[in-house]
Nucleic acid binder design. Structure first.
Length: 577
RNA sequence: CGGGGCGUGGCUCAGCUUGGUAGAGCGUUGCGUUCGGGACGCAAAGGUCGGAGGUUCAAAUCCUCUCGCCCCGACCA
């Protein structure tokens, strides 16, 4: 391929709207061009990257016997009503919807559980036909509340989604493990540093779920991990050993104290110097949204710990929770914000507590009266016993749940997610097969996604320097470029052409930079574009000498023309490690 | 959706406070000189100042509305 024939337009300056390195560099190097908020055009070089990554995905999934199919982007409302998700997705505003000429509601597929389940259940009638695993690589559409970071969170994006169908739980476990193995091979192959973490299964639902995280400071997810034990979890899901707190001692009589304007745990610690946060219990009022109603609930947590809202949603099986407004709090507790507590709390309000409070004596809490707090509160004695759940947000520095070694925190970009869905969708949609016992049985499903446009962006996030992108060899748009520097020097042009042909013949994915630019401009351009191996044919061409640049580390070495093919191949092999 | 900010040649931005002939750098085109770190000279093209309405003798500039985009919080590959 000749670069003079490839549409390639690099920018001298950083685009104004790019915040993180991958967005900035992909836009500046001309790989992506914004068409609308969260909607990008993939320029030729970017499309080559995406295709190469998609090919790795295909190869590894096909090795596990998965079938590639193509599902429709435009999907009818009825299909989404059959799983009960139309209402939810429309209410959340996450789905692009449209009407056809007859006025029928359609949507642009944000995900494909429904279509795939519908398709497979029509094809598979018997347990004898399973296991089945189908996947597609396709554009998906989500009207994200806040698209950002270029390809990281777009409204139109490319995703691989696979769905496994099994007759029973054991089959699902096998399918899940096969996909997990395939995912590991995929991310190993494309040269990103990733971690598999335990995850919350979120809106898609289901039992077990793990996320594949590319570690990067700009990642939108926080993960906690322990190198020794191998434990790793999304902070939404993570648990840890409970940090210790001073014992409350024997139950003491309840006391009520005036605490004007003392509202936060920190203020209480200052106000009651002998009461540390670990002996307090804060009571947070939430508004919980359920399918049929909204409820105000009270959630207690030890004063030195935080509430994990994802765990809270799961514990009460809500669609969503959010902090209650000051008005709602006053209505619910009769006191201003900052004085809520279990003592005297209306029976109408659900009271939950984190397990860290179970059995603890003599707590300091609010008492639902503005300007007062209670000392020596004993749950069950001075207030009703709450429902105890694990509602605690695990934090870095706390002990690994197994070994007790301190957990570390990192940011990650979620590039893959695998779920054991179970029968959630097949039951809702009535998708069944005939089981061995002669009864119609819902499919046992798994679903598996990879962000196909996001992963290369995550790779750039990990592999760049101050000059530009440093593509990992397996997903680089080309493995190597040969560039002459002075178009007027015939020997340069000829030698470059020759090396280009030699490298092609040797099976190297190489391009020839035959653009008419000054040498300095070419150097800068290639530092930015970031092809792994760069061969510059310059002033020593007449002596059969060229320069070899390894983009990673920018090591430049002189090299005789005869050695180029061997050295490039060696460097590529090293780059694939 | 809440809070903040920005819309001026292809890109990055100045001009707006204090209304009075639309600017710079980069990029693009032509000619010439260069040819190892985004070269130089000369010449040139290119802008409904996001849009609509209003105030005014006069609006990029002031007011109202609207659309788009970006950033901070709740969703997710």
């Amino acid at each position: 391929m000749r670069l003079s024939q490839i549409l390639i337009q690099t920018l001298r300056e950083d685009p104004a709207d790019a915040e993180i390195p991958s967005h900035r560099l992909l836009a500046r190097a001309g790989f992506i061009v914004k068409t609308a908020a969260g909607v990008y055009t993939y320029a030729p070089l970017m499309w080559r990257v995406v295709k190469k990554f998609a090919q790795i995905v295909r190869e590894e999934l096909d090795r596990e016997g998965a079938n590639e199919v193509m599902l429709p982007i435009i999907q009818p409302r009825e299909l989404w009503e059959s799983s009960g998700r139309w209402e939810r997705y429309v209410t959340d505003g996450i789905m692009f919807t449209l009407k056809d000429r007859k006025g029928s509601d359609m949507c642009l597929g944000p995900t494909h559980e429904e279509v795939m389940t519908d398709f497979v259940s029509a094809q598979v009638n018997s347990y004898k036909q399973m296991p089945v695993n189908c996947y597609q690589i396709q554009d998906k559409f989500r009207d994200e509340i806040r698209p950002r970071f270029g390809l990281m969170r777009g409204r139109e994006f490319i995703m691989m989604d696979a769905y496994s169908f099994d007759a029973d739980k054991q089959g699902l476990d096998v399918a899940y493990q096969k996909m997990r193995d395939a995912y590991c091979r995929i991310f190993d192959r494309c040269g990103v540093d990733y971690t598999v973490v335990q995850a919350d299964s979120g809106a898609i639902g289901g039992a077990g779920s793990e996320e594949f995280m590319v570690i990067a400071d700009s990642g939108e997810d926080a993960i906690l991990f322990c190198r020794e034990s191998g434990y790793a979890a999304n902070v939404e899901k993570a648990s840890s050993r409970l940090p210790s707190a001073p014992d409350g001692g024997e139950p003491q009589p309840l006391e009520k104290h005036e605490t004007p304007d003392v509202k936060t745990v920190a203020q209480l610690e200052a106000f009651f110097p002998e009461w540390v946060a670990g002996r307090m219990a804060k009571t947070v009022i939430y508004k919980a949204t359920f399918a049929e109603e909204e409820k105000i609930i009270a959630v207690m947590q030890r004063g030195d710990l935080e509430i994990n809202e994802v765990k809270l949603v799961n514990a009460i099986d809500a669609l969503n929770v959010e902090l209650a407004s000051d008005e709602d709090i006053e209505k619910a507790t009769g006191a201003e914000t900052g004085f809520a507590g279990p003592v005297g709390l209306s029976e109408d309000i659900t009271l939950l507590a984190d397990k860290s409070l179970k059995g603890r004596a003599n707590l300091l809490t609010g008492c639902n009266e503005t300007g007062f707090h209670c000392l020596n509160v004993n749950l069950g004695r001075d207030a009703r016993e709450p429902d105890y759940h694990d509602l605690r947000l695990a934090r870095a520095g706390e002990g690994d749940p197994e070994t007790g070694a301190p957990l570390q925190e990192a940011r990650g970009v979620e590039v893959g997610h695998i779920f054991k869905l179970g029968t959630k969708y097949s039951e809702a949609m009535g998708a069944t097969f005939m089981a061995q016992n002669g009864k119609p049985t819902p499919f046992m499903m798994g679903c598996y996604g990879i962000g196909v446009s996001r992963t290369p962006a995550a790779a750039v996030e990990q592999h760049h320097d101050e000059k530009g992108i440093v593509w990992p060899v397996p997903i680089a748009p080309f493995e190597c470029v040969v560039a002459f520097l002075d178009k007027k020097r015939k020997e340069q042009v000829e030698l470059a052409e020759q090396l280009y042909e030699d490298l092609r013949a040797a099976g190297v994915e190489v391009c020839l930079d035959d653009r008419q630019m000054s040498p300095g401009a070419k150097f800068k351009d290639h530092e930015l574009i970031g092809l792994p191996i760069q061969v510059f044919v310059g002033r020593n061409a007449a002596d059969g000498k060229v320069e070899l640049l390894i983009r990673k580390g920018l090591q430049k070495t002189d090299c005789s023309a005869e050695e180029v093919v061997a050295k490039v191949c060696d460097a590529l092999a090293a780059g694939r490690q």
